[in-house]
Structure formats: C-alpha cells, structure tokens
C-alpha cells in the first residue's frame, strides 16, 4: 500500500504541490492526470524519494520515504519522465549495473537480466549502446530497469510517451498483467490510456487533487453521459427534434451533425440511469425514418478533464 499524506512542495514562492493525500492498494492502477505543470511529476518525485517534500510524507508498504528512505526505495520501481539512461552504456551493461545496485549478483543477476531483456523485447539490441537506440527502445530500456527487481510498487511517469501504437499496446498489456500483484501509479496525458489500464484516476490541477474516482465514475460526470445518439437517413429531421422535446423521459434533444444524406441526433434523457432508448427507436421507426446506427454515450474523459481542471471552461464556451 502506498499512503501519501499531506504532501506539499514549494519551489521558492511557487506552490507546486499543495497538500495532496491519497492511498493506493494492491491490485490498483492509479492514473495521474493533469495539465502540464500541474504537479504530477513533482508528486511522483517526492513519492520516490528524489525530491524532499516541503511537508508531508509518503509511506511505501510501511516504510516512510523520508525516515526509512532506503527500505522504501528498495520496494519501488521507478520510471522517470523522459526515460533517462546512461547513453554510453550498452543495454545489457546498463541493466546489469542497475541489477547490481538492486543487490543482485552472480548467476541470479545474469538470469534476471536475460529474463527482463526477453520480456521487454530488448534481446535484439542488447549489445547496442543506449545513445544509438530509437525512442521506443530507449523507453523500454528504462521500463525494463524499473521492473528489474520485481518491485511491489511501480511508479511510472508517462510510461508510453513517444511510443508507436503497437509499442503502447505492448506496454499497456504488461502493465495490466503486472497490476494483479502490484500497486501501480502512472501519469499520462493520454486519456484513452486511462480508460484502458487504470482502475482509478486522480486529476491534479495547480498542485491540488480536483477529482479522485474510477474512470467510469469520471465519465459519468460528463454532460453527455447517458445521452443517446441516433444517426438516421436524411428526412425532415429538424421537425423531429422539435416534436421530441416533449417525448416522455427526454429532457431535450439536438442535432449534432448534418450531411447531405444523413444526420445525427442526440437525446438527453431525464434519468441517465434509465434512458428510453427503445421507445425513441420505436418512435423513429414508426415515423418512417431509417435508423443507421445508434449508441449510448458513456461520457467523455476529455470533457470531464477540462471541466475539472479549468472550472469555468464550460461556461466560457457557451
């Protein structure tokens, strides 16, 4: 378990992290979201013991990162932002060095390095120096470094940054697989990643936690959550929108999209838990429209993200 309590960091007058507290347990994958300079990296640097906090502390599996720093750091695997690694070392040399510093030696060290090389798909570049590697390989080398000692707690600052879609897929699959018996904190800019791998999301803005929820819970905050969209063959659609406004169970409706041949309508139900999708469908068919597709919106993270990080953004647009 990672317990973060009242963590704050000042850089001079600038309050980068302001009294952040949360707890993450085994099996959880916590996603850290937030605009640039929100304090994500600073928070992670404090949890891993790189930056001393101005106040507060983090307790990693019972060891205080300030009081028992070495014991706490032993349990953590850390992938820093931009995946730093010694540029003049070979991949195998670098991983061997980290393994040595993690207390492995001799045969067990060699075996572990081999295992990790294979697992992170690095076997083909093992004898190359790190400065000759592409961004994707570089990222994977640093990722390999963080899981080398099979840590209970994994902290990753933008683990899929700079990877192509296939590599992202691989890394995410590895994270999901490891999640079962580890506690993972990762930061990201990519919202789809949150939906895909995280079991919980914390959104930080200006150094404070502004949301702490499951991805589903966050999406439910979206204004579009629970709305139903129908794409129909073009007819006199505007007419429907007007007629439907007093349809039972519908709050309001609007035209989202209109083209030469078809149009998309969105209905906002009064009760998002029981949207009358079937009734609307029936109604449209009875009126003689041909329905191409229809779906229920789960909500959009990007919208919620903007809503909680810039609180007046929604009103400003309207």
């Amino acid at each position: 378990m990672i317990e973060v309590s009242h963590l704050s960091k000042y850089f001079g007058e600038n309050n980068a992290v302001d009294d952040i507290s949360f707890t993450v347990g085994k099996g959880e994958v916590l996603g850290f979201l937030g605009p640039n300079a929100a304090g994500k990296s600073t928070t992670m640097r404090m949890i891993t013991g790189f930056l001393p906090p101005t106040s507060g502390t983090a307790i990693i599996g019972g060891s205080d990162i300030i009081g028992e720093s070495l014991a706490a750091r032993k349990k953590i695997g850390y992938l820093p932002e931009n995946a730093p690694a010694y540029p003049d070392m070979t991949v195998i040399g670098f991983l061997g060095f980290i393994a040595g510093m993690r207390g492995l030696s001799g045969d067990s060290k060699r075996r572990r390095v081999e295992e990790i090389l294979e697992r992170c798909f690095l076997t083909e570049v093992r004898f190359q120096t790190i400065n000759t590697l592409s961004k994707g390989f570089n990222q994977r080398v640093c990722f390999a470094q963080s899981i080398l000692h099979d840590p209970e707690y994994l902290i990753m600052d933008e683990p899929t940054d700079g990877l192509d879609p296939n590599q992202k897929y691989e890394i995410r699959a590895m994270i999901r697989e490891m999640a079962r018996h580890k506690t993972i904190i990762l930061s990201t800019h990519i919202l789809e990643e949150v939906e895909e791998v995280c079991t919980r999301v914390i959104i930080i803005a200006k150094g404070r936690i502004v949301a702490d929820d499951t991805p589903e819970g966050l999406m439910a905050r979206s204004a579009l959550h629970g709305t139903i969209c129908f794409t129909i063959k073009k007819g006199d659609g505007k007419d429907i929108v007007q007629n439907m406004n007093d349809f039972p169970g519908i709050e309001k409706s609007e035209i989202v999209n209109e083209s030469e041949t078809e149009m998309t309508l969105r209905f906002f139900p009064k009760e998002t838990s029981a949207p009358p999708a079937d009734l609307i469908l029936q109604h449209l068919l009875e009126k003689g429209f041909s329905v191409e597709t229809f779906f229920m919106e789960k909500g959009r993270l990007d919208e919620v993200f903007r809503m909680v990080t810039i609180p007046d953004s929604i009103e400003r647009e309207e």
């Binding site: 640097r45 891993t48 013991g49 790189f50 070495l70 014991a71 750091r73 032993k74 953590i76 850390y78 820093p80 932002e81 931009n82 730093p84 690694a85 010694y86 540029p87 980290i98 510093m101 993690r102 207390g103 640093c142 470094q145």
Partner: peptide, 14 residues
C-alpha cells in the same frame, strides 16, 4: 543533463 540523476538517487543506495 541526461536526467539519470533521478534514476541513481532513487536507487536504494545512499
């Protein structure tokens, strides 16, 4: 410059 300081100072060594 390379950021490896973050790596080395978070290893379990003093």
């Amino acid at each position: 410059r390379t950021g490896t300081i973050e790596l080395i100072l978070t290893l379990p060594i003093t």
